[in-house]
Write a protein that binds this DNA or RNA. Structure first.
Lengths: 374, 374
DNA sequence: ATGAAAGCGCTAACAT
DNA sequence: ATGTTAGCGCTTTCAT
């Protein structure tokens, strides 16, 4: 039971506490010390006498105390929040990035604030404004394209000493913010070069149906550049805005109505998988009649047919590396068991399977990695 | 530039502000009013004179002010945070749930704190403790199994008036916390009954390789009960702890080494998809020689072969409904454009495709829903 | 319609 | 090794 005191004479003595939670002061009373000692014990245990520490620990247990992080953050000017703006969680690409980020941050006691913007660049402004209101320890955004206002907010945060990280893209000439990712144009070029090296001279790129998936567009442009330089034909098709595998099927059907190119590159593996299924069902021989090249190296690419060739994108690693960069920028130690990721390892690598090179297919039944949880 | 004042005589006048951000007071000065008026204008715009409001808006723009949420939360005792503990983000099931949660909460101005626990029940305690330190407006956890300490924390939160929601499971006899989900035992029974109704009397359940995926185990038990009541044979196999599609393949191969049952049910569609691919590659006729039944209704089930039969799980809807319940419990209005989900719609439904009933297969090429973004 | 005072729970800086 | 004081930026309550 609380101890309702008589209101003193002075006009402004209005107790306001409403929640029932124990505070530092409660613990202090319980342990017979001042709040300051408890606070110290929590943050610098070495600076309190062992015996006092013991009493305080006891009091903490007795009262069920857990620190009020808002109060702590306000007082210290620091906050243990990392804010991340991503296009969508319901997309294995970013879901795994989030998981990596979380895995890096949680051991360090940093909380993750998530703001999916559904690929709407415009929403980023609001999200940044709101997130900045928490005085985050760091901010991670997706990509390098931002509205002028969003950019101004990011600059303001940077000036205030908050690390700002752009994930999933990289332009070495731009050093304004930290970047954890890779150059999508170059990946597109690499995709093109692989197809050209296989001898395919009549190419198509199937872009995702998402207008603001800039990185996919850039890969397409890289591919186009490679084709142009080699004098090969390239047409670009935008997949219909439906479920990705279905979209891949439809894209293939559409191309066949006109004239099927020799090789298709896709904005992602789901599109490629759909096209692969459709091709197999139509009796097309892969890669003899039609070559397919995906992007992402999602599990399905390993399983379908004799394996879909693809560019492996370091989904989880980008999240982990982002988290590590944040800890580094904040001068915090990484968790002991964490290897520091070499940023060179964040470059996608070509995974040649059977849809571009005959006989390159792996035996999927023997592949076992990851985990089957659901 | 700041205006470094001379330290007054009194010993304790130590300015501490370190960040450069504008505060309510700055805006007030700028607008020639007191902080109180600005605060009021932000929360109850009707209570300030239109002309004053205009001046304040101007001042807010000029200063680039954004409210400090920690201070606001501390002062008001409320916080605009919803904390969610989930097994993993890198799993389309929970990723879509998160997306639904976020879609419900963002319009209401609530932030989402994410804590993936990697299917480790033990970590939930720490996560709850930390999250409670933020004085969240509500807490969402996954499932109904908790350690005693975690349970105690949840009860404490509930007593303090914080809505606590258990997602993805449901037991009508237990009314301690809000539950948004369904009974997995019954889903398992329904899966069994479908297989039995198809005339299959020799069944197997392939569980996921994740020890703490209790809901999958429960579905298996429901299936077992249905089989028992019908006098049908059932064996349970635990999939190897590897990438789910590969695990599905391996599970099928393992079963074939012994004696292949007539029908297989799986803990999730990825396992089923792996088995489906393996079966097709081995030339097994589906469903004539072997029937397969998945769980989840992931996109791949629609695409593979002539469609994999499955139980459709309302992944996104559970998140959305959780968000809506939270808003409701907090007495906040839902976003205008949001339909209130009927909780009856959260029950999985059987989707009969070609792996259990011959000729039931859809034509996947005609199916187009969702979005192909990546 | 606006303002003054106090306090939310904690920590930094300065004592002792 | 521990305590004292003031203040983080905001909202609440009461007053004008």
């Amino acid at each position: 039971m609380e101890n309702p005191q008589h209101p003193p004479d002075s006009p402004g003595a209005r107790p306001r506490r409403s929640h029932g939670r124990a505070t530092l002061a409660d613990v202090a009373t319980h342990a017979g010390v001042t709040p300051m000692t408890v606070s110290r014990m929590l943050r610098e245990p070495d600076r309190v006498a062992p015996e006092t520490a013991q009493r305080i620990r006891q009091a903490i247990d007795d009262t069920g105390y857990s620190p009020n992080k808002q109060a702590g953050g306000l007082a210290s000017g620091r906050s243990a929040i990392v804010a991340a703006i991503i296009p969508s969680v319901a997309n294995s690409v970013f879901a795994e990035t989030i998981q990596g980020l979380s895995d890096a941050l949680q051991p360090a006691g940093l909380e993750l604030f998530l703001a999916p913007n559904d690929y709407k660049l415009e929403r980023e402004e609001d999200q940044l404004k709101t997130l900045l209101g928490w005085g985050p320890a760091a901010i991670a955004v997706t990509g390098r394209r931002h509205s002028p206002v969003a950019l101004a907010l990011m600059r303001q945060a940077k000036r205030a000493g908050t690390p700002v990280i752009q994930m999933w893209d990289l332009d070495a000439r731009d050093t304004e913010f930290l970047q954890i990712g890779f150059n999508h144009h170059l990946v597109g070029v690499a995709m093109g070069e692989h197809l050209l090296a296989c001898g395919y001279r009549d190419l198509a790129y199937v872009d995702s149906g998402v207008a603001e998936d800039f990185r996919a567009h850039e890969r397409g442009q890289g591919l186009a550049q490679a084709a142009r330089l080699a004098g090969a034909a390239l047409q670009v098709l935008v997949a219909p805005p439906c479920e990705p595998m279905a979209a891949g099927r439809l894209a293939l059907l559409k191309l066949m109505q006109q004239r099927l190119p020799r090789a298709l590159a896709f904005a992602n593996d789901h599109l490629a998988a759909g096209a692969c299924l459709q091709a197999l069902e139509l009796g097309l021989a892969l890669p003899d009649q039609l070559a397919l090249l995906g992007y992402g190296d999602f599990p399905i690419s390993q399983q379908l047919g004799r394996g879909i060739s693809t560019m492996a994108a370091p989904r989880y690693q980008i999240g982990l590396a982002t988290g590590q960069s944040i800890l580094l920028a904040l001068g915090r130690p990484l968790a002991e068991d964490q290897q520091v990721l070499d940023h060179g390892s964040l470059v996608p690598t070509l995974v040649v399977r059977n849809t571009t090179v005959a006989g390159a297919g792996i035996n999927p039944a023997n592949v076992a990695e990851g985990s089957s949880r659901d």
